[in-house]
């Protein structure tokens, strides 16, 4: 196609190597032995573990801290926002979108980690 219309700028390939496994590609076993795949796997495990800890840390800081905050500052419970008590607004309504957002970001990051891992393996294996 591009040869027939030379006025166009030449296409530059910006995509990476194919991400998905073609059936029939031979693969070395992926375990914790001293293979390169094993090293990559170790880094994937650490990456996913760190991601999980980050999300749990946020959950602890944003939601798990609330009892302590209200214990130390009981006056906060009387704060009214649009006629609703602050505890009811936070725990009855606000916490659910927060949980969904945390979960959504986690799923995206975890899937990206796995894609990076798959790409690394594919690069190494040609």
């Amino acid at each position: 196609m591009s040869e027939s219309r030379p006025a166009r700028p030449a296409r530059v390939r910006v995509t990476g190597p194919p991400r998905h496994v073609r059936p029939g590609t031979p693969r070395p076993p992926l375990d914790d032995s001293s293979t390169l795949g094993g090293v990559y796997l170790g880094s994937l495990l650490r990456e996913q573990g760190r991601l999980a800890l980050r999300v749990l840390g946020l959950l602890l800081a944003l939601v798990g801290s609330l009892p302590l905050v209200f214990h130390l500052l009981p006056g906060l419970a009387d704060v009214q926002v649009h006629g609703l008590g602050l505890p009811w607004l936070l725990l009855g309504v606000g916490v659910y979108p927060l949980l969904v957002v945390l979960g959504w970001r986690y799923v995206r990051r975890a899937e990206r980690n796995e894609r990076d891992f798959a790409d690394l393996l594919d690069e190494r294996r040609g």
Partner: peptide, 12 residues
């Protein structure tokens, strides 16, 4: 553990 954390797309 490797099996638990390996994405299905790179499974043998």
């Amino acid at each position: 553990l490797a099996r638990l954390h390996t994405p299905e797309s790179v499974r043998t």
